[in-house]
């Protein structure tokens, strides 16, 4: 028997020809081994992506509100295979490097007094209950220290909720989640457009940022190839399942079928699944007596 934990040995022809081996077992073991290998490959890929994203943004003076188009494209394509937990790892790594957790922000993260464990954060005016006063939030220091500002926190969390929960190798091809990630600014611009058709934007800076974002759809073919690789679609193990499916039409027996017709015993309703109700039994008997 080939041992399932050694796919390299199992794939050699010598093992397949050994007496007493079942090719089905071999195939199953190989299938699972290849699946596990694909998962490992994906995890290494995600690790590489995290290491790349720590270095973003490319220029130290970049503005997180109007990021460079190249950085946005890099971020979006890199985030595709991520799960929210991987994204948290990215934020952690960036914080260890002393950067803000939002991948497009070049600033340092906030540093609070290390003796303080919680902070009270006040919301904007009119954010409290009933649209009056201010909203109050008690935030642990670690959460506060992840970001350079609350704007960056919002931007980063806006991306996090768009990531798909399930790992890449379980995603379906038609799953839109995690493939079209919007930055907070893009999301806002889209919803603005939706609400009040084409209002001029507030500042020249915003417009410039949006112009930058216009030419994003280039190279989508190579992107989808990348995604296929990430998902492990190219793996022969994932092409077809373990079970060969053959669809065969049902053979209908020759001869015509006839519509059911009334038989004498069905007159009073007949048997229900072989059981003749007592009432009708008696009635039948009576009828027979009368006759």
């Amino acid at each position: 028997m080939p041992s399932p934990d050694r796919p390299a040995a199992a794939s050699s022809p010598a093992l397949a020809q050994r007496p007493g081996t079942d090719p089905r077992h071999l195939a199953i073991a190989l299938h699972h081994a290849q699946q596990i290998q694909a998962q490992k490959d994906t995890q290494t890929l995600i690790l590489d992506r995290i290491l790349e994203l720590i270095e973003l943004p490319s220029s130290p003076t970049a503005d997180p509100a109007t990021p460079a188009a190249a950085d946005v494209a890099a971020l979006k394509s890199a985030l595709r295979p991520f799960q929210p937990a991987d994204y948290d790892n990215l934020i952690l790594e960036r914080n260890i490097e002393g950067r803000c957790g939002y991948a497009l922000c070049p600033r340092e993260h906030r540093k609070e007094d290390p003796r303080v464990r919680f902070r009270i954060v006040w919301g904007a005016k009119g954010s409290g209950a009933g649209g009056r006063g201010r909203e109050m939030d008690i935030v642990p220091r670690e959460k506060l220290e992840m970001w350079c500002s609350s704007e960056c926190a919002e931007r980063a969390m806006y991306i996090r909720v768009q990531l798909a929960e399930e790992p890449v190798w379980e995603r379906r091809a038609d799953d839109r989640r995690g493939r079209q990630i919007l930055l907070l600014e893009e999301g806002r611009a889209a919803s603005n457009d939706h609400h009040r058709q084409r209002q001029p934007s507030a500042s020249v800076k915003d417009v410039l940022g949006q112009l930058d974002n216009l030419n994003l759809a280039t190279g989508s073919a190579s992107d989808s190839a990348d995604l296929a690789l990430e998902r492990g679609d190219v793996h022969p193990a994932l092409h077809g399942g373990r079970v060969e499916v053959q669809i065969r039409e049902k053979q209908v027996a020759a001869g015509s079928t006839r519509a059911p017709e009334l038989r004498p015993e069905d007159r009073m309703g007949g048997a229900i699944e072989g059981y003749v109700p007592r009432d009708t039994q008696d009635q039948d008997q009576d009828m027979l007596d009368l006759l």
Partner: peptide
């Protein structure tokens, strides 16, 4: 150490 660092170390 962070989870990605652990993965990197064993990689």
């Amino acid at each position: 150490i962070s989870p990605s660092a652990v993965r990197l170390l064993s990689g």
